[in-house]
Design a protein around this nucleic acid. Structure first.
Length: 563
RNA sequence: GCGGGUGUGACGCAGUGGUAGCGUAUCAGCUUCCCAAGCUGACUGUCGUGGGUUCGAAUCCCAUCACCCGCUCCA
């Protein structure tokens, strides 16, 4: 009763099967597993690396190779730290956050006010309901201020203060509470603010959010500097010490990029100068990005190290709305064309309040994962925010020059302006997961004895499938293995990932390849030796056709060419 | 960060104090002319990790790591 297995949701069960398959067949492994694993880090195994690469290659082919006005870029993961100050990533995440020990709410300290104390010294903590008030009072009595006088009155938890001293001049603040039943006073620390909605002074330590992975460039050990600062400033407060340490580390501090986008903004001019393109044009890049996520969840869905496929599409201000419309449709078309269930991909427009500080408008392409809808790609109108910020910070003219048009101010060419940017930013890691989920299917069929058996098939699009062709001898004799090896060699030479397999009975080999997502299996049988024909089997229908050995390669190539 | 759950061979699981077992998979051989067939044999576990209690721990206790679910968070 009440055991996890019985209460498991269908989506949970599906995910568990997929995770299990991923490990068993070599799609995705937990990182550093032999050491107990590392939180939120995953490795792509022999089949997984093929799947992810195929997906990314398809994206590159579609957005770079199939368009005259999009060029590729691969910028470094570690960039000048000024990039992240200009973009707002450093400042945006330096606000300290604290957790309320009673309500468990997390808030920014700069949005919190001082404690409210009534004229008779009462400090009222306002719980959302009566039951919570009881629980909170109990927690205060036993954990947060043992020995203090605590009362509950309806939804309130009432404490009695004797004095309140906010922190000042490096001295920590404190609140002195009356003791229970005339007992000794109880002191609790006070940092000058309380939980906004509840007036609760029981708080966790201040924690600065660490969105970006920080590292140190240079071979000199940065910790030595930290130790020096610490030793020389022992008497300083935590806050002051922190500032001094930050300053000491600043000269070597670098960040792992939290998005690939900034590399493209920073190289905007170089790209434009190297490859002359008329506006509108785009720069595309795929690669790793890193974020210290608050919560990691759902297998590879949200992890600290992930891979992006991003386009920054530069267009003239005023045309940005129509290009947003264009790209959102293009990207949706692209995701859907490889899917068995295209209806599971939907748009979700961001509400105004939800938009990032740089965005004017944004659509997410969401996928219906087993746990619900979640983001797969975001198509945002980033306006001229990033180019302007980098222009300002670097002093460079990050503008587009149109020498064929007049500047209205001078009445003469050239016309210079900062382009607007439409950014389709897709997750390669998420895409890989999405297509694994989309492809996973189970069919019940009868085995040779008439018993029902479950056939697990990964119905991956042939262009995404890790192995394109399995080549088998029907049995291991009569020259069949030799013939099959000849065929597989031909596929190797043509650059098509193929596998020769002679192990076990033929049915098992088909089943293994169904589970791996191999779309086609070619089998050499007795008839091959007589008339040079083989069978080719389709993964999804299991139907077979007999084709000439000579045509095997071209038949497969033709089928793989289909989108 | 909070709360709940889980962790036993590659995978799925059984095993609630007496020195680990099943199924599948894997490997070898025989057999087999088409969908996880059959027969024979073989391999894989210091029970997530580290402590503790005990004569004795997969089993009880503590800590820790990882995963799952819910909340929170996601510039």
């Amino acid at each position: 009763m009440g055991n996890g297995k019985e209460t498991r949701e269908p989506g949970e069960e599906l995910m568990q099967k997929i995770v299990s398959l991923c490990k068993r067949r070599g799609f995705v492994f937990q990182s550093s597993e032999i050491y107990g694993g590392l939180k939120s880090a995953y490795d792509y195994g022999p089949l997984g690396v093929e799947l992810k690469r195929n997906l990314m290659n398809e994206w590159w082919r579609d957005v770079v190779h199939s368009r005259e006005n999009v060029m590729g870029l691969e910028s470094s993961i570690i960039m000048h730290p000024e990039v992240w100050r200009a973009s707002g990533h450093v400042a945006g995440f330096s606000d300290p956050l604290v957790d309320c020990k009673l309500s468990k709410e997390r808030f920014r300290t700069d949005k919190a006010g001082p404690v409210e104390v009534q004229s008779d010294g009462r400090l009222v903590i306002r719980a959302p309901d009566k039951a919570a008030a009881k629980l909170w009072a109990e927690a205060v009595k036993t954990q947060h201020a043992p020995g203090a006088r605590v009362e509950t009155r309806d939804k309130d938890v009432v404490l009695h203060t004797k004095s309140v001293a906010p922190p000042a001049e490096g001295r920590p603040g404190k609140i002195v509470l009356a003791g229970f039943d005339g007992g000794p006073d109880v002191e609790i620390p006070y940092r000058g603010y309380v939980t906004p909605d509840f007036n609760c002074p029981f708080l966790s330590e201040e924690r600065t959010f660490n969105l970006m992975f920080r590292s140190f460039l240079g071979s000199v050990d940065p910790l030595a500097e930290v130790v020096d600062v610490f030793v020389a400033n022992k008497d300083k407060s935590k806050l002051e010490l922190r500032a001094l340490i930050e300053a000491a580390l600043a000269k070597s501090t670098v960040y792992l990029r939290p998005e690939t986008a900034q590399g493209m903004f920073v190289q905007f001019l170089n790209c434009l100068n190297a490859v002359s393109m008329k506006i509108p044009f785009g720069i595309a890049q795929m690669g790793k990005a890193f974020r210290n996520e608050v919560t990691v969840e759902h297998f590879t869905f949200r992890s600290c190290e992930f891979e992006q496929m991003e386009i920054e599409f530069f267009c003239e201000p005023g045309t940005d709305d129509q290009w947003l419309e264009y790209w959102k449709n293009e990207r949706m078309r692209w995701w859907r064309q490889y899917a068995n269930n295209p209806d599971k991909f939907v748009f979700r427009r961001h509400a105004k309040a939800e938009l990032a500080h740089y965005a004017k408008d944004c659509y997410d392409i969401e996928y219906e994962y087993p746990w619900g809808f979640g983001e797969l790609e975001g198509i945002a109108n980033r306006t001229d925010y990033d180019l302007k910020k980098h222009a300002e910070a670097s002093g460079q003219h990050l503008v587009y020059t149109d020498s064929a048009r007049n500047d209205p101010a001078t009445g003469k060419p050239p016309l210079r302006f900062t382009p607007y940017v439409i950014e389709p930013s897709g997750g390669a890691t998420r895409g890989t997961l999405v297509y694994l989920i989309d492809a996973y299917s189970e069919e019940t069929r009868r085995d040779a004895k008439g018993e029902p058996v479950v056939r697990t098939v990964l119905k991956l699009h042939p262009r995404l499938a890790p192995i394109k062709v399995g080549v088998f001898p029907l049995v291991k004799k009569d020259g069949m293995p030799e013939k099959a090896r000849e065929i597989v060699e031909e596929f190797f030479r043509a650059g098509i990932n193929s596998r020769y397999d002679e192990q076990h009975a033929i049915g098992r080999r088909y089943a293994r390849h169904d589970e791996a997502g191999t779309p086609y299996c070619i089998t050499v049988d007795g008839q091959t030796i007589q008339d040079d024909t083989v069978t080719i089997r389709d993964r999804d229908t299991t139907a077979q056709e007999r084709i000439k050995v000579d045509e095997a390669l071209s038949v497969v190539q033709a089928r793989l060419g289909k989108i």
